[in-house]
Design a protein around this nucleic acid. Structure first.
Length: 603
DNA sequence: AAAAAAG
């Protein structure tokens, strides 16, 4: 009874794409090398296949293709503003109008969104009784109000993550989902939450103690704001009340908003705990819990706070609420922690777009720490000369420390490159001002710590420079994912110094998987580094370190002598299905049979 | 050792 399915997904099937004859099917890193992905599965009734996908492409040609046509995946152009003006979106739409004429690359794709980039997106789902995906919003009964807002946002078709995650979430299932931010993740968990709240016909009561029906957590203040902005658009005029709570801003105003009633609370952990301890928020009514950038939320720094919120306050236990985790990377270790909060969940991995794909050209240069500034200056001057700098080509520079960010900002500004910095030692006002001034091109260079590495959606980041490399390859994935968004191409340059040797192996693997050219010196250092490091903590995360695949497979394969066997023991129906599917999928013929039996309802 | 998140 296979409950693991692998699809070749053609999310862009109704948009014209130029032929790409010799290119192999793209498989994102987190789905490779795990013996699960079946690239050219073509015998799956009811499931879109490689051939069917192409047929779909011609079928859809009648519907607006070419320049500006076929928007609606995630509309970057015609942003809809609710009642009040919405600065970032207005700016972004101006950018897009202008960009079509400025950006040479716009000529090579249809319109401002590179739909070709969404071709061949593999999807992997595991768990029991997986609801099938949909190919349009109309197939799901989201309700009148929500449909109206989806239309107003100019979302024509669901993105891959939405096509798979929304039916799962609508079925009330817990979910662990790997997908790149910027691929429509926020909507993927907001739509079902809003819909569920509307269906409950629940009316939030104003009062001193706020009892939201839904809680959405994220690791940074800026990301929390961004989610709030989006969620507000989706829920406009539906009566669903959304309140945001984060640190660094006066709590009084946030408390006032809470008093007026709240259905969905979007928050950072610290401020939320504060509010709960003041007895202004109770989680006892929470029916929907969503964590964005979930792997970060459960890493060493955050885990105690999350446990406190989810397990030690008054939130209903897993099973009595619906829990959804989203992230672009999901190491096995963190999946294990996350599974504490989930109940009979479905694991979903949707091919990433934008991060560590061939959409982002990754360059690595060996630069000693003392030469970095000089090297950066050359790079920026080169950019300026060939015009890839300025309002339409923003440059995001990541550094290791907050002090380093300030210092580099000053130095760049003094040397004729208007720059601004963002980091956690700045007061919230400064952080927001910096981000806006970067977004609208006033200062086309932003120097940032990891505060800006995750989730932030800044259009027009053409170049991400890792001035200092991160310690963790996952952080690298998130950082470079700030460019190459919405299917556009981007450039990522890393300054690799001898201090970064421990990262060499993981970096080489990542670059190879993304079809990037790996410099010889880097390959050599990787080999040397691996012989040194291979004895120690080896591979913390098992098979594929990037992105993730369902760690429960590992749990099964090791179940002879592994403590997971008590959780996922032989009595668990899940385990049989893992056994069946991992067998099936490692044997192509059996895989097809397996998929057939699923589709015809045998299992 | 650093960054983020409460003040």
């Amino acid at each position: 009874m296979p409950t693991t399915m692998t699809w070749s997904d053609y999310g862009a099937e109704s948009t014209y794409r130029p032929a790409r004859p010799t290119r192999p099917t793209y498989v994102p890193p987190h789905l490779r090398n795990n013996g699960v992905f079946v690239p050219n599965e073509s015998n799956q009734p009811g499931i879109r296949t490689a051939q069917l996908g192409r047929t779909g492409a011609s079928r859809g040609r009648g519907r607006g293709h070419g320049r500006g046509g076929g928007r609606g995946w995630f509309n970057q152009t015609e942003r809809w503003s609710p009642n009040q003006s919405n600065a970032p979106f207005d700016i972004s739409s101006k950018f897009d109008e202008l960009e079509v004429d400025h950006d040479d690359e716009a000529n090579t794709v249809s319109g401002s969104i590179n739909f070709e980039a969404y071709e061949d997106i593999p999807v992997q789902a595991s768990g029991s009784d997986i609801p099938p995906p949909v190919s349009s919003f109309a197939e799901i009964d989201l309700g009148e109000g929500l449909n109206r807002n989806i239309k107003r946002c100019n979302y024509v078709r669901p993105t891959p993550i939405q096509r798979y995650a929304i039916p799962i979430a609508m079925a009330g299932r817990d979910l662990m989902a790997c997908a790149q931010t910027g691929s429509g993740k926020t909507a993927a968990f907001c739509f079902p939450i809003i819909c569920g709240i509307l269906n409950r016909n629940h009316h939030s009561r104003p009062g001193q103690l706020a009892c939201p029906l839904s809680l959405i957590l994220s690791p940074t203040r800026e990301l929390t704001c961004q989610i709030h902005e989006e969620a507000r658009k989706f829920s406009s005029q539906t009566g669903v009340k959304i309140v945001v709570a984060y640190g660094g801003a006066p709590i009084s105003r946030q408390l006032q908003n809470l008093e007026r009633g709240v259905d969905i609370l979007v928050a950072t952990p610290g401020r939320l705990v504060d509010m709960i301890e003041r007895e202004r928020v109770s989680l006892r009514m929470v029916k929907y819990l969503a964590l964005d950038e979930a792997d970060r939320m459960l890493d060493m720094g955050f885990e105690p706070q999350i446990r406190k919120i989810v397990e030690q306050m008054d939130m209903p236990p897993s099973g009595a609420r619906q829990t959804m985790f989203f992230s672009a990377t999901f190491p096995n270790e963190i999946q294990r922690l996350a599974s504490d909060f989930l109940s009979n969940y479905i694991f979903l991995a949707v091919g990433r777009v934008g991060s560590s794909t061939d959409l982002i050209a990754q360059r690595v240069e060996f630069v000693q720490d003392t030469d970095k500034r000089h090297h950066l200056m050359n790079l920026l001057q080169g950019q300026r000369e060939n015009g890839t700098h300025g309002k339409f080509a923003l440059t995001l520079i990541f550094v290791e420390t907050k002090r380093g960010a300030d210092a580099l900002e000053r130095w760049l500004s003094m040397n004729g490159f208007p720059a601004i910095s963002i980091h956690g030692d700045k007061v919230q006002m400064e952080r927001e001002r910096a981000l806006n001034s970067f977004k609208n091109g006033t200062t086309p260079i932003l120097v940032a710590t990891d505060v800006a590495s995750r989730g932030l959606d800044v259009p027009h980041v053409a170049h991400v420079i890792n001035f200092d490399m991160p310690k963790d390859i996952d952080d690298y994935v998130h950082r470079i994912g700030r460019t190459g968004r919405a299917g556009k191409s981007g450039l990522a340059t890393a300054f690799f110094s001898d201090k970064n040797l421990p990262l060499a192996k993981a970096l080489v693997e990542l670059m190879q998987e993304a079809n990037q050219e790996v410099p010889h010196w880097l390959r050599n250092s990787a080999e040397r580094a691996s012989t040194i490091a291979s004895g120690g903590h080896a591979r913390r995360f098992g098979g594929s370190k990037f992105g993730g695949y369902d760690f429960r497979r590992d749990a099964y394969s090791e179940s002879e002598n592994n403590y997971y066997s008590s959780t996922y023991g032989n009595t668990d129906p899940n385990v049989d299905s893992y056994a069946a599917s991992s067998y099936a999928l490692s044997h192509p013929a059996a895989a097809a049979a397996c998929a057939n039996s699923y589709a015809s309802g045998w299992c």
